[in-house]
Amino acid sequence: MAKLLKMGMMLLLSPLIWADQPKSGYDYLQAETQAMQDDEFANPGMATVDMGHALFNTPGNNGRRCSDCHGEDGEKLDPKKIARYPIYNPELGRPFTLQQQVNFCWEEHLDNIPFVPGCTELVALETFVRNRARGEPVNVDISGPMRPFYEAGKALYHTRFGQMNMACYVCHDQYAGQYLRGQILTEGQTNGFPEYRLGSGRITSLQRRLEECLRSFRAEPFERDADEYIDLEVYLNARGNGLPIETPAVRY
C-alpha cells in the first residue's frame, strides 16, 4: 500500500519535475532540421568547425599552435572543462567566457595579436573547441564567486528594453512552443551556440544573437563583450545546466 502511495505521489509530481527540466531548441525543430544538425556532412555549421580546426593548427607569431598543447584534433581538451564555461577568473574578478579563454591563449601562448571579440576567426575557434564537447552536459558552477554575475544576468533577462518594451523572459519563459508569425519560440537555451541560423545563413555566436534580440526590441545593443553580455551568458548557460552541448546547432 505504501509502495502504491509512493508511486502515485511520484506520478502526481512528475509533471512538476519535468516542467523544471530545460528543453533544448533542438526539440522544437522539425524532424528534417534535426536530421540536418545530426549529420556531420549536412550540418552547415561544420564548415565553421573546419575553419576553427585549421586555425587551431596554424602557427602563431612564436611558431606555436593551439594543437601543440591540445592535440591536432583538440583531443586533449577536456569536454567537462569546456562545459563549465563561463568560469570565474580570479585575476579579473569576473566570469570568463570560452571565447575569451580562446582569445587569451591566442595572444598569450601563441604571441598573436588578439582577435576582435565576435570576429569570424575567433567565433570559428570557439565553435571548434565547443564542438569537441558535443554531448557533454552544460555544467556552469554558480555556487561560489559566480553567483553575483548569475544574479546580474538573471536581472537583465527580466529587464524590459527598447521601444517594444520587451524582456527575454516574456517570450522564452512564457511562450515557448508558440508561433511568432511562422517562427516557433523556444526556451532560448544556449547549449547549441555558436549555432548555424538557417534564416540568416551564417554561424551566430551568443552575443550576436543577443544583439539581434535587442535590435528586434528596437533597443540599442551593448558593446561587444560588455559585462551585460557576459553576465547574461552566465545566467543563460547555467539556466540550461544539464542540456547536452550541440555546437554547432542548426536553428531557424
Binding site: R160, F161, G162, Q163, N165, R215, R218, E220
Partner: peptide, 14 residues
Amino acid sequence: TLNQVADDYYGKPV
C-alpha cells in the same frame, strides 16, 4: 518610460 531605445526610435511611440 522606456529603456535603452535605439536612436532611430528614440522619443517615439511605435
